[in-house]
Design a protein around this nucleic acid. Structure first.
Lengths: 262, 262
DNA sequence: GAAATAGTGTCTATTAGACAGTATTCT
DNA sequence: AGAATACTGTCTAATAGACACTATTTC
């Protein structure tokens, strides 16, 4: 993992703390939203921040493990997680979790230098999240409120959210990530609402239907139908084995409709 | 950057070392190659490894800065670096540098836990690299030799190389990354050789020409022509302002031709 | 029957891939 | 002239986007 090579160089380096921070995304009331926690201690006490915590060298098996642990401890989303390394069929209904990137800048914390490894998590709308272990108050906030500066976050967490949202937007095109936003069984309309919420623009129902059913291995029919609401019941699908979409679901070009910040 | 929130939690965490490792790619003799250094000290003494070193909390401005510093110190590629955040015109001839991801696993190093942040760098073929500061021996190795286990690397560096190559392969499609492999002025044939080397398969000259010249802002004609070799001199281009390719240069599907490991 | 939602079909302009010919330079 | 490389053009099958209709359920 490291590359020290000068004999005298080893062992004497300024210590860092290594943390993981989670950008947990879901769709609530049609809006792409991120899970935030209220900080109970300095620095940035009282501000909203991403859930996360320090990597435990003694007990964490790797960074992915630490992220999964924090996800479990700070949120109630301890569903089986499907990492990109997991098997092709493991994704149905599981929380998607993948590393975003690392962040560090000196002097961030007066007591210690802390490098943070950010993770992107995607989960179906869980209703109201029950506040877990040391998370005093967790809440879902629409990402537009965060990115438009209507909500102030601690540290560089606004940038991290922006990076996570951008990653999600890109991966909707070429991967089956959208299936992580919906329950194990879902309709094509629900899947389309995911794309519309994440991309921030409406999609044509008919072309969308053609594309997602045409993408090899993306959807698997259950034969059953959804019995909710009025209108003709929609067919229920499960996520298929494909991790990449071929052909991809292309994003319409042009800027998304601008939301005026309140 | 971090997210500690329990009052008693701050300040008492097992120390980490934070390193940056570089996956420096270029094309030599038509083969996508990675820059490696021979380790002069344990662990893995004598093995090949990625260039890199520890982040210096006192002097490095951020992780990108640390990566740039290591690139300068351990290789002779201290050209002006163009990070993804740099201006649209800054890319011509500069070394491309972007973060790949972070790696950590406990017990990697007997003396200290070290988290590594890997970077992908792309540069034009520099001829023979002059060994810089503390790098005893640097050499270019075809990535096929690394990925096929013909060459053994220290730590998890083989996996990091694999991740870096995969990133490069993907970014050739939708971004102007290919221009970072060639000198500031280049011909379309040279650019095509980049795509062929990275993707490991031949491309049709005519369709390639149509695509790259059709991608808005990718290439800017210099009006001049290359006077090298025989045959009709090719037009010289510079890199244009576009960072993303629209439409993208799509990669032909199907597996690349398999190189039998020697 | 009316309303609401699901699902299928068609038309057309564009594009991607396969392929052949012309142009310009050096020897 | 011949070889080598650069460049331009054509044909066709597949695709994407725009758009309209039929099907099935609830009220």
């Amino acid at each position: 993992m490291d590359t020290r090579r000068s004999p005298g160089e080893a062992g004497r380096h300024p210590p860092f703390g290594v943390a993981v921070d989670l950008v947990v995304l879901t769709i609530r009331d049609g809006a792409l939203s991120v899970l935030l926690v209220r900080r109970g201690a300095p620095p940035f006490q009282g501000l909203l921040a991403l859930p996360g915590g320090f990597v435990k060298a003694g007990s964490d098996a790797d960074l992915d493990y630490a992220a999964r642990r924090e996800l479990r401890e700070e949120t109630s989303l301890d569903l089986p997680t499907a990492t990109p390394q997991a098997g092709p069929q493991a994704g149905a209904g599981a929380v998607h979790l993948e590393q975003l990137r690392a962040y560090w800048r000196p002097g961030r914390d007066p007591r210690q230098d802390v490098a943070t490894v950010a993770y992107l998590a995607v989960a179906p709308d869980p209703g109201e999240p029950a506040a877990g272990g040391d998370a005093a108050a967790v809440r879902w906030v629409p990402v537009d409120d965060v990115l438009s500066d209507a909500t102030t976050l601690a540290f560089d967490h606004r940038q991290i959210v922006a990076d996570g949202v951008e990653r999600a937007r890109q991966k909707l095109e070429g991967t089956a990530l959208a299936a992580a936003f919906v329950p194990p069984e879902f309709t094509i309309a629900e899947l389309r609402q995911v794309y519309e919420a994440v991309w921030g623009r409406p999609l044509d129902k008919r072309n969308f239907h053609r594309k997602v059913t045409g993408a090899q291995g993306f959807l698997v029919s259950t034969g059953r139908r959804a019995s909710r609401g009025r209108g003709r019941p929609a067919e229920l699908f499960r996520r298929g084995p494909a991790r990449t979409l071929n052909p991809p679901i292309t994003r319409p070009d042009g800027a998304p409709p601008h939301h005026p910040s309140a």
